[in-house]
Amino acid sequence: GLMCLEHEDEKVNMYCVTDDQLICALCKLVGRHRDHQVAALSE
């Protein structure tokens, strides 16, 4: 899978609806997407 741009060791596994961007779990937990609307990726 694709790796996160901000956290190079994390794979992107969710999608930020607010930013129209693929993000990883760390982005959602501690990153700038924590208050955004996110959706899980169905692979």
Rank of each mutant, 00 (worst) to 15 (best):
D35I: 02
Q37L: 03
T18W: 02
S42L: 03
H36E: 02
L5C: 11
E43C: 15
E8R: 13
L41G: 11
N13H: 04
H33M: 01
S42F: 01
H7S: 00
D35T: 09
C16Y: 01
D35F: 05
E43F: 04
L2M: 15
R34L: 03
T18C: 05
D19V: 00
H7Q: 02
R34E: 12
R34I: 10
G1A: 03
H36V: 01
M14R: 11
D20R: 08
E10L: 05
E43W: 06
L29E: 14
R34H: 14
Y15C: 11
Y15P: 07
A25V: 04
C24H: 00
K11M: 12
V30H: 14
C4Y: 01
D20Y: 02
L22S: 15
D20A: 07
Q21S: 11
R34M: 10
Q21K: 14
L41E: 14
Y15A: 11
R32F: 01
A25P: 07
L2A: 15
K28E: 10
Q21W: 01
A39Q: 11
Y15W: 08
C27W: 00
V12I: 12
Y15L: 10
V17W: 06
V17S: 14
E8M: 14
D20P: 01
E43D: 05
N13L: 05
L22V: 09
H7W: 00
D19L: 00
L5P: 11
M3Q: 04
L2K: 15
I23G: 06
G1E: 13
L41I: 08
L26E: 12
C24L: 00
L2F: 04
L26V: 11
R34A: 14
E10F: 07
D9V: 08
R34V: 08
C27G: 01
K11D: 05
V12A: 06
D20Q: 12
C27P: 06
H7L: 00
V30P: 10
T18E: 08
H36A: 02
E6G: 03
N13E: 08
A25T: 06
E10V: 03
C27N: 02
E6W: 03
H36R: 01
L26Q: 15
G31Q: 03
V12F: 15
M14K: 13
L26C: 13
K11T: 05
A25Q: 12
V30S: 13
C16P: 04
T18L: 04
S42P: 11
C4L: 01
C4W: 03
G31T: 04
H36Y: 03
H33Q: 01
